[in-house]
Nucleic acid binder design. Structure first.
Length: 595
RNA sequence: GGCCUCGUAGCUCAGUGGAUAGAGCAGCAGCCUUCUAAGCUGCGGGUCAUAGGUUCGAAUCCUAUCGGGGUCACCA
């Protein structure tokens, strides 16, 4: 790569000119800004101390040395403290010739290292998936693919939270008010049906609290003493005591939910290598806690509850086991972390979980360290912000939750309506048209969510967000489809798309800019894997597509007189299409061959 | 209140130590005998929350303040 050659040469230049060994961090290379001549720019301010000369004079000296000693550098110019280096067109042409046939261009070398385990989705079985889960699922899936592309061995795992008080609430409500309703006899999707009874529980629970408050009970006490919540707690105890009737109902209702989830995941286009269920792992956590009590790491209070005091670490006291012996969230997570370590011995253990659980993961790490698990440092919490609606936070009780299934359907419908309006569907028939608007609708949704930095809260406006123009997934898909169309026409006209560079080929400024953009792709992938951010890939994909679209305007390939240029442009187009497809693959977005 | 986090154009977001801070949307003005106008070109729009500090250089790092969000449960 040219960057390495430049770094080495600049290092030699500094040594020869100023008799000083240059620190790698001092050699700051960046892409030259569009408005200046040159391709790669060296910031020379860091060297003015050793050169004892003005920034301009220092840049001139280094520029002269580099031009003389590195044949790839054609020329240089100096503006203030910036040394702009022009790279010979042969370098770019060779880069294109040697890479445009490589299918996995941009992907890192496949390393046979320890696996990276990525946990994402992690749904509860008491309600259907909503917009917040969509952000989680898309981030987790895309992150897995980026890591995979960077050469890692990735295991995508899902941890279904299928037990706990919240599930008992749905079960209780169904027992009381369900009248035997099933997905079959109601036509409701299983997860939606169970979610309905979760809401029913909440409704009657609220009523009971209100009644108690009217009788003079404080709201806090009312919330604890309402008959429904007590019955739900009893149900949880029966569950943990393996009561057969409770277990049967629990299995039945969970199966309904899983059937619903499977459909949602399929529509969203994500899958997992392995799915864990908390009902099968929480006991491991209890064992760990008992172990900790034996070793004196945790303390058991008189009422039977188990705690750890983390005030020395600046955290609070934390409950690890309830006084009635049932496990809490932390108990389960300790167990699943240990299990994952045993099973995978991972290089890194990534959890894609919302930022409201940052405290939880800090505690998890510290508790594991108290237990002597040095591998706790390999835990990384990819924390993402909430998705907000124009009206504010999503609240299930107020019915402001954007349901995942509804949202995707709406995206499909809108993309179909748009396509019809633009006349895009005219040459498509039946299933092909259906697939197209699903691909585009999903592309719009995925890109919209992934282009935002994960750690930030983001706003989702249902009316305005469904956009297919500008910085959107469909724009990038459109660019890809257009390139494919060009290539088809060229091939039909008998032009060879395979190409070897000829130093006589013209290389326009636009072509060079596009090549530079493509040239950066492998670095972008590594960067995104490092900072765990699909947003880096998404924004790159848009910039690349924009660059090509502007350039496309000038193309007129099929009318071009100069055959050499036509060959260059066709291969440049093909290469661009491949990089776009690779970038979109990492985002989990499909590319349509025509649209 | 303690801790964490965010604050960039009317709106949604990039940029996280370098040059004159960028896109898209919205607004205005143009461009379809060319491969596909889901596109392209141009115009207007900024005290990078505020005040200090660090340095050759700060939207970016540090401190304080203001504002939004999160968290500090025998919920998950």
């Amino acid at each position: 790569m040219i960057e390495q050659l430049l770094t080495d040469t600049i290092k030699a230049a500094v040594k020869s000119l100023y008799q000083v060994e240059a620190n790698p961090s001092q050699i700051q290379l960046q892409n030259t800004r569009k408005e200046f001549d040159g391709d790669i720019t060296l910031v020379v301010f860091p060297f003015t101390k050793v050169s004892r000369k003005s920034p301009e004079a220092t840049a001139m000296e280094i520029g002269e040395y580099v031009k003389l000693h590195l044949s790839e550098v054609e020329n240089y110019n100096v503006i203030k403290g910036f040394l702009n280096l022009s790279i010979r067109k042969e370098y770019w042409l060779n880069f294109l010739a040697s890479n445009f046939g490589i299918d996995d261009f941009g992907y890192g070398e496949k390393l046979n290292g320890k696996p990276v385990v990525v946990e994402f989705s992690s749904p509860n079985t008491n309600k259907p998936l909503h917009l917040g889960h969509i952000r989680n699922n898309l981030l987790g899936f895309s992150l897995s693919r980026i890591l995979e592309a960077s050469g890692k061995n990735v295991a995508k795992v899902n941890l279904v939270n299928d037990r706990g008080l919240h599930i008992c609430k749905s079960m209780l409500a169904w027992q009381k008010w369900g009248n035997g309703e099933t997905p079959e006899n109601s036509g409701l999707k299983g997860d939606h049906l169970v979610g309905k009874y979760y809401v029913v529980f909440d409704k009657y629970y609220k009523e009971e609290i209100a009644t108690l408050v009217n009788e003079g009970v404080t709201p806090e006490d009312a919330a604890k003493k309402a008959p429904l919540i007590i019955q739900a707690q009893e149900l949880l105890q029966k569950w943990e005591a393996h009561d057969e009737g409770t277990l049967t109902l629990w299995r039945t209702m969970n199966d309904w939910v899983y059937e619903g989830f499977a459909k949602t995941y399929k529509t969203l286009g994500i899958e997992f290598d392995k799915t864990y269920y908390e009902s099968q792992t929480y006991l491991l956590g209890k064992e760990l806690v008992e172990d900790g009590v034996q070793k004196g790491i945790f303390k058991r209070r008189i009422d039977g509850s188990v705690w750890i005091d983390l005030s020395a670490e600046g955290l609070d006291e934390k409950l690890l086991l309830r006084s009635d012996g049932t496990s809490v969230y932390m108990t389960q997570d300790l167990g699943t972390a240990q299990q994952r370590y045993n099973e995978y011995n991972p290089e890194q253990l990534i959890y894609v979980v919302g930022n409201e659980q940052e405290y939880h993961f800090n505690v998890l790490k510290v508790v594991l360290k108290h237990l002597g698990c040095n591998w706790a440092d390999s835990i990384y919490h990819l924390s993402y912000g909430m998705v907000e609606l124009p009206a504010g936070k999503m609240k299930s009780r107020e019915g402001t939750v954007v349901d995942a299934d509804d949202l995707m359907q709406e995206m499909f419908d809108t993309s179909e309506a748009m396509a019809r309006e633009l006349g895009k569907l005219d040459s498509f028939e039946g299933e092909e048209a259906v697939n197209l608007y699903r691909t585009i609708g999903l592309g719009a949704l995925k890109y919209f969510i992934l282009k935002v930095d994960p750690k930030k809260n983001m706003l989702f406006n249902p009316e305005e967000s469904i956009d297919f123009n500008g910085n959107t997934g469909p724009f990038i898909q459109y660019t890809y489809a257009r390139i494919k169309s060009v290539l088809r026409k060229a091939q039909d006209a008998g032009f060879e798309v395979s190409f070897t560079t000829d130093s006589n080929a013209k290389l326009l400024k636009e072509e060079k800019d596009l090549l530079k953009k493509l040239h950066d792709f492998p670095v972008i992938v590594l960067q995104a894997a490092d900072m765990h951010s699909p947003a880096v890939i998404a924004n790159y994909a848009f910039e690349l597509a924009s660059e090509y679209n502007r350039f496309y305007h000038e193309l007129t390939i099929l009318k071009e007189e100069n055959l050499l240029s036509r060959g260059l442009r066709l291969s440049l187009s093909q290469f661009t299409a491949k990089v776009i497809a690779n970038a979109l693959w990492m985002l989990g977005i499909e590319v349509p061959e025509r649209m």
